[in-house]
Amino acid sequence: MSAAFVVGVLVAAGVFLLLRPGLLRVVLGFVLLGHAVNVVLLAAGGLARRTAALEEVGPDTADPLPQAFVLTAIVISFGITIHLLGLLRRGAGGPAADPTGGDADADSEGDGGEGGHGTGRRR
């Protein structure tokens, strides 16, 4: 049962952070959600067998397949975290140069999207 609790608290905390102002919180919330998904993946394989699949394969050996998935998933979510941080830094280039100041960044992003429709031809 422990995995379910871990997932629950991670998701709740991650979502709460996502919904708060400030892009840094969004990044951290995303990290937590990534953790939660990794735990789910591992739990899917069953947590009753807990010996690493390294030497002797016995009845208690854990399923290696979810582990392989999770391993790459961790690295991928690291990549996405880095990307988010890059965007956060980029957003800091605007007039409101406070990356944790929240809404200013989101505003400029929204405008950019809308402007893209209107000025698509002229560009």
Binding site: A4, G8, A12, A13, V15, A43
Partner: peptide, 20 residues
């Protein structure tokens, strides 16, 4: 919303994971 999502995720994990 965070609490609801957390509960949903926990319940889903509890019910739908854990192979024999």
């Amino acid at each position: 919303l965070a609490a609801a999502t957390g509960v949903a995720a926990a319940a889903g994990t509890a019910v739908l994971t854990g192979r024999d």
